[in-house]
Amino acid sequence: MSTTFQCSIKRIRFDENYEPANNTRLTTNFANLARGESRQENLRRTLAMINNRFNSLATVDNPKGDRYSLEIDIISAEIDIEGNGQAFPFIETLKSTIIDHHTHTNERIEGMIGNSFSSYVRDYDFSVVLPSLGCKFNEKPEDFGDLHGKLYQHLVNSEVFKAEFNKQPVICLSVSTTKTYYRTANVHPILGVEYTNEDYSRTDEYFAKMGLSVRYFKPENGNAPLAFYCAGDLLRDYTDFELISAISTMESFQRIYRPEIYNTNSPAGVVYQPSLSYGDYSLTRIVYDRIERGELAVKQGKWTEENFIKPYKDILDEWAANFTVVNVQQNQAA
């Protein structure tokens, strides 16, 4: 095909002065926190929560619990379908860097790439496609997520992505409120107690089409398991600090966004059914508009349909029909 689906990557620092870019998905955790009268205090408290959680897990030679802090960059990846400079904002993830304050040079250590996952096409799939087909709870068409999965794999296997990051992303999300999770005897020194469930959720299957498999772990002193989506071996391919950076970042966001699951007053038991109607939880001091987030997902899904899916339908269909990860790698080697 003549089209190249050119990828590009931009970075913006997530700190107390962060302001969302014009093309940022406003449903993202970090964008939602950065609006309104409380924006700067929200950001300051969120970053403090992340740093405190990191230090609570990185305890070696850290007696005061203040040795490390995280620098977080928002990674925005765009795809230019026709190679004409008209780039579509495809996904946003987070990249962390760990700062060791007990060294004279404030040594910088690689943290995780991935963490949060924000996607306009995912909004379209879940907020436009499923309702338009009248899909009931956990129902979906057979090809649901096919295009999104192939676009994602095209991005992470591109030379542009590999030039920026030396590892594949690990996406860390909330567990599903539609499934029951069972504690196993497997305990990882960083990730904590592993949980399992009997069948995939619709989200798990969606991420599987991105080439990602899922494992569930509840870190030490955490209230509920987190879902870790990874293309490789989660336990072998990543350093302890990378894993801790993912836990501290995403568990903090989930405590803000889903306190009924991650900021409860008692931890998950041997058999665990997450529920947003659970009442025994504490609120953080961080303002988060969850209702607005759901409304924006629908609006942004429809925007994606009008500005990406419909205009490029024929090109996308032909490209997806011929796409394999092997083809991407062969093209790059040529």
Rank of each mutant, 00 (worst) to 15 (best):
D204V: 14
N62I: 08
K162L: 02
E159N: 14
Q330T: 06
N138W: 04
N327S: 05
R67A: 14
R285A: 14
F126D: 07
S266W: 01
P131T: 02
I309D: 00
R13K: 13
K299R: 06
E139F: 14
K136G: 01
F144S: 03
E198R: 13
I261P: 01
A224E: 03
A48N: 06
Y200C: 09
V193Y: 05
T24R: 10
T46D: 08
G85L: 11
T264K: 04
T177R: 03
G279W: 07
S277W: 03
A231P: 02
A87H: 11
G36C: 07
I12F: 05
E37M: 12
Q300C: 10
D199L: 11
N307S: 15
I315V: 14
R25S: 07
S252L: 04
E220R: 09
P141I: 08
R25Y: 05
K150T: 04
P89V: 01
S201R: 00
F165S: 09
T4M: 09
Q332H: 11
I309N: 02
R35T: 01
A48L: 04
N223W: 04
E292N: 11
I113N: 00
E110Y: 05
M210Y: 13
V175I: 11
T184G: 01
L147P: 15
F323T: 02
N265M: 12
L243Y: 00
D80W: 03
Y272M: 02
N327M: 09
Y182E: 10
S76W: 05
D289Q: 12
G301S: 13
Q330H: 10
E194I: 08
N322D: 10
D66F: 09
S248P: 10
Y257C: 09
S116P: 10
R11D: 07
A163F: 08
L33K: 03
I99H: 04
H102P: 03
E139N: 14
A333V: 15
N55D: 10
L226A: 10
T59C: 06
Q254A: 04
